[in-house]
Computed example of a mutant assay.
Amino acid sequence: MSIVELRQYTLRPGARDTLIELFEREFVAGQEAVGITLGGRFRDLDDPDRFVWLRAFPDMAHRRRALEAFYSGPVWLAHRDAANAAMTDSDDVLLLRGPGFTPPPGAREVLATVCTPPGPAAAFDAYAARHLTPAHALHRTEPAENDFPRLPVRTGEDVRVWFGPSQAPPWPSRRLRLAPVTTRLFGSGAAGAA
């Protein structure tokens, strides 16, 4: 299990392709060079002004060191103004614990589902164990405090996040009274779908 950031950016109208091109050209190698593992990178199929991506770290200490290295390093400093100019909100970030997720080769559409388990989380986790496979890459909230406050994360939430093909598992369940938010995604980079 890794520490995973699920990052969902709201972009200025028409800026998504520009940001993705910059991200793939500069930020993938720049982050990997400081020990960050990049996962799926996606276009939101229902919102042309959203970019969704994941990155992972072995633990919180590695996360802090890698983020300090990247955000004070030459790649970010050279390209941050262009990246920030494309975004209106980069603070919709969930800090999770899980396996990370990269879509399988040839995958076209991926569903990302975020929900807050009602009642005891153990009941949800048992239900998820019966209905989700390892391919769904189930993640749960990482309870550790964000030790890199320069990049905010959502707090005060206990969520579960999973990924899957365009056909969703049997959610929501009336018994669990889930109110999941499912986003249809299409891979945008080398780690995304072709």
Score class of each variant (00 low, 15 high):
126 A>P: 00
119 G>T: 04
83 A>C: 03
79 H>Q: 07
180 P>L: 02
124 F>E: 09
157 E>P: 01
155 T>E: 14
162 W>Q: 06
192 G>A: 05
127 Y>H: 14
45 L>R: 15
23 F>I: 03
30 G>P: 06
36 I>R: 03
8 Q>W: 06
118 P>K: 08
86 A>H: 10
146 N>G: 07
14 G>I: 14
99 P>Y: 02
160 R>F: 09
53 W>R: 07
40 G>E: 07
86 A>L: 08
143 P>L: 09
148 F>A: 05
111 L>M: 11
188 S>T: 10
10 T>M: 11
25 R>I: 04
49 D>Q: 07
193 A>M: 08
35 G>D: 01
187 G>Y: 00
9 Y>V: 02
98 G>F: 04
155 T>V: 12
103 P>V: 07
172 P>S: 00
163 F>C: 00
6 L>F: 13
165 P>N: 13
150 R>D: 10
135 A>R: 13
179 A>H: 12
110 V>Y: 03
4 V>K: 05
60 M>N: 13
27 F>Q: 14
170 P>A: 14
81 D>L: 09
165 P>F: 10
153 V>Q: 00
166 S>T: 13
135 A>D: 14
126 A>S: 11
92 D>Q: 14
37 T>M: 03
37 T>I: 08
141 T>K: 05
107 A>W: 04
9 Y>C: 06
25 R>L: 10
10 T>I: 12
119 G>R: 02
96 L>P: 05
151 L>A: 08
55 R>C: 01
193 A>T: 15
76 W>E: 05
150 R>Y: 11
49 D>P: 01
115 C>W: 14
174 R>V: 11
176 L>K: 04
121 A>K: 09
169 P>F: 06
62 H>L: 00
37 T>E: 13
111 L>W: 08
172 P>N: 01
168 A>D: 06
98 G>R: 06
